[in-house]
Amino acid sequence: MSEKNIWPLWEVFVRSSRGLSHVHAGSLHAPDAEMAVRNARDLYTRRNEGVSLWVVKSEDIISSDPDSKDQFFESPKGKDYRHATYYKASEGVKHL
């Protein structure tokens, strides 16, 4: 199959009936946005998984660089003062 005949890749996000956020469910190929959301319905909600769908072209997603893992994600480690549990409630403070 020649390059021009390959349908673009789309990422699918499904919001389940729990009423939470849309969650990434997987990806699929489709010729355009309208067909992508229909294909998503057929592939990712056929067992009653969702009440809402988002699709976005995979190429439109900007992701963090896996090679920059250290500079991106190492810094917060050990900084436990950034967690609420680090702090003790002072005596006499109500409603905490």
Binding site: W7, L28, H29, A30, R38, N39, D42, L43, R46
Partner: peptide, 11 residues
């Protein structure tokens, strides 16, 4: 013609 369409027609 495509996997996605296969599932759609099957449904």
């Amino acid at each position: 013609p495509e996997l996605e369409e296969d599932v759609a027609l099957g449904n």
